[in-house]
Design a binder for these strands. Structure first.
Length: 602
RNA sequence: GGGGCGGUAGUUAAGUUGGUUAUAACGCCGGCCUGUCACGCCGGAGGUCGCGGGUUCGAGCCCCGUCCGCCCCGCCA
């Protein structure tokens, strides 16, 4: 009987000293091979671990002969007796107490020499393009196997946690009505309706709200979303959301099951106890203290808005600036801030990608309290005293200021703060490596380049009740019942309480400059549905890929997505996207136009 | 749409001011080795220097174009 029919008795990760003496059958891949002459050690790998095999003539001549021919990534079965390695045990391996004395081998299939080393352990021996081209081999690497085990657990625990909290798992279409605005959609041509298109859903937003109108009360879905926008390290054109919606919701009623979900994930997967209740912070406070709507609160170095203190300071850089704010680098961390380092920081803040400040005003506070440099020379002593007080400065501190518009000042200081976090090792000795935070009360609107108000979240986001009257009179001041879940400076989810009253919805459309006709054209079916007793409701969507990335410590979303696209949206393994030939296009009533010469494929 | 970094052996990288036969490590192949565990030792094979053009007596190196990968800005509820 072949070993395949016999079946494996154990995985490659589970044998221990107590199994010594047992005859076992293992299946797996040749991970590494150490040929000592008349004795060959082979490490056999499957998804659960690695077990050492021992081949020697006296254990089985036929098996030994086959063992000599085995090469990396061959797929094999072995039968043999578990032996205690005694003094030769390898403490670095989970199964290092034992090895298999191989008496029988079956080669399921040989492998060509792989284009890169799968058994790379911690070091990586391949560039990203090769890894993506041979993705199935890349995924064999133990690091990747671990990432996808975690990802699988996240899915399972999410379903378990939300189902137990009373949420129904319901599905929504991927092929949906095209609605302009928001993210760019991928389009799917309709064969049956010439010239017409579906869009791939950028999120299930409208459908989940309709579920609430339907009375399903609590909904969730682990679902794919599609956005045809430019890619980043943490952005893929298709990605997975844990999508949630709830009737009769308040923000707190949504936070509770989400926090419970996070606690479950961290406890079950990482064995970490998260706090009972996550910190909440308004958007205004987050911006004021950290210059960011997704602050990393694992360390201090908060912003200090000193605009009021430096009015008439005597320093030209400060006087007349719309907003002056600064960081106080504490004395015990400021040692590394040499003149040269600070000059580099000055270049850093000037770079456009970091916000583009005009410069960095800075001063070092001496042991006697005197301020160094141009800031010390120009800022009047009483203003220095006020700033020292306001920023909690001590001798030895370095103060850094940005004086610019409100937006620039906050953007630059946010980037500078994160830069200093890494440069000065400010996370060193951090006792809580997982700092969750709800950022609440986002602005209802943002202004685009033309000065028009656009929805910061989406047009169904409810304003705070007390701000409804300001929708027309002062849109910029309106705060929404919108919130993000932030982890260590990463946005991992966001949502809002939705509008369920048509009079409020009308005011929001007006503030957005959306006519009745336009609103009807874009969202008519939703507005119609809301005429039939919609419940108050709200929800949230979590980025499952980003959660997986943070939980595994992966450096890129691509390391937690099995078959990701490159930054230019290609699948290097299959070659997608490809040119469609004329018969296919004809069936869809499509024709190419103005195709750039470079895209004729190769 | 824009900015930056990179592309040299199967892989990862080095390659000086433009100058003889383009290096190293790992991998691969062959030989030796009975306790290795990133095994070791000896030997060997392996190159369209991304692609196209240009400058030059001569280009991996300089110039122009182009393709690909990565990072970032714009963009992205």
């Amino acid at each position: 009987m072949s070993l395949l029919e016999v079946g494996r008795t154990h995985t490659c990760g589970e044998l221990r000293r107590e199994h010594a003496g047992a005859t076992v059958v293992l299946f797996g891949w040749v991970h590494r091979r150490r040929d000592l002459g008349a004795r060959i050690f082979i490490q056999l790998r499957d998804r659960d671990g690695i077990t050492q095999l021992d081949f020697a003539e006296e254990l089985g001549a036929e098996a030994y002969a086959l063992g000599e021919s085995l090469r990396s990534e061959d797929c094999i079965a072995v039968r043999g007796k578990v032996a205690d390695r005694g003094e030769n045990a390898n403490a670095d391996m989970a199964t290092g107490e034992i090895e298999i004395k191989v008496t029988e081998v079956e080669v399921f299939s040989k492998s060509q020499t792989p284009p890169f080393v799968v058994a790379d352990d911690d070091r990586l021996d391949a560039g990203e393009n090769l890894r993506l081209q041979y993705r199935y081999l890349d995924l064999r690497r133990p690091v990747m196997q671990h990432n996808f085990r975690v990802r699988s657990q996240i899915g399972y625990l999410t379903r378990k946690s939300l189902a137990e909290a009373g949420f129904y798992e319901l599905e929504t279409p991927y092929m949906v009505k095209y609605t302009p605005g928001g993210a760019r959609n991928f389009l799917v041509p309709s064969r049956i309706h010439p010239g017409q298109f579906y869009a791939l859903a950028e999120s299930p937003q409208i459908y989940k709200q309709l579920f609430m109108v339907s009375g399903f009360d609590k909904y969730f879905q682990i679902t794919r979303c599609f956005r045809d926008e430019d890619l980043r390290n943490d952005r893929q054109p298709e990605f997975t959301q844990i999508d949630v919606e709830m009737s009769f919701a308040t923000p707190e009623r949504i936070f509770a099951p989400m926090e419970a979900l996070m606690r479950t994930l961290w406890k079950e997967i990482l064995d970490v106890e998260l706090e009972d209740t996550f910190l909440r912070m308004s958007w205004d406070e987050a911006m004021a203290r950290f210059g960011s709507d997704k602050p990393d609160i694992r360390f201090g170095l908060e912003l200090n808005d000193v605009t009021e203190h430096v009015r008439d300071s005597g320093f030209k850089v400060f006087d007349g600036a719309e907003c002056v704010s600064g960081l106080c680098v504490p004395a015990d961390k400021a040692g590394g801030l040499s003149r040269k380092v600070i000059d580099n920081l000055t270049e850093f803040v000037k770079q456009r990608e970091n916000g583009g400040a005009k410069g960095l005003a800075w001063t070092r506070i001496g042991e006697d309290g005197t301020w160094s440099g141009a800031v010390g020379k120009n800022v009047r002593p009483e203003v220095q005293a006020a700033l020292t007080e306001a920023m909690g400065a001590q001798p030895g501190c370095v103060l850094m200021f940005i004086a610019d518009g409100w937006h620039t000042t906050h953007t630059v200081l946010c980037n500078l703060r994160l830069h200093l976090r890494d440069q000065l090792n400010l996370l060193e000795g951090n006792d809580n490596p997982w700092r969750f935070l709800w950022v609440t009360d986002f602005p209802m609107f943002e202004q685009n380049d033309a000065g028009q108000f656009v929805a910061a979240h989406h047009p169904f986001t409810s304003p705070r009740d007390e701000h409804v009257d300001m929708l027309v009179s002062d849109p910029a001041a309106v705060r929404a019942k919108a919130y993000d879940l932030v982890l260590n400076g990463n946005e991992i989810g966001g949502g809002s309480i939705r509008i369920h009253r048509s009079d409020v919805q009308a005011k929001v459309f007006t503030a957005l400059g959306l006519s009745d006709e336009e609103a009807q054209f874009k969202f008519g079916f939703l507005l119609e549905a809301f005429k039939y007793g919609p419940p108050p409701h709200g929800g949230i969507a979590l980025g499952l890929d980003r959660v997986a990335m943070l939980m595994t410590g992966a450096e890129s979303l691509r390391d937690v997505i099995a078959f990701p696209k490159t930054q230019r949206g290609q699948d290097l393994m299959t070659g997608a996207p490809t040119i469609a030939d004329d018969p296919q296009l004809a069936e869809l009533y499509l024709t190419h136009r103005d195709l750039p010469a470079s895209s004729t494929d190769e």
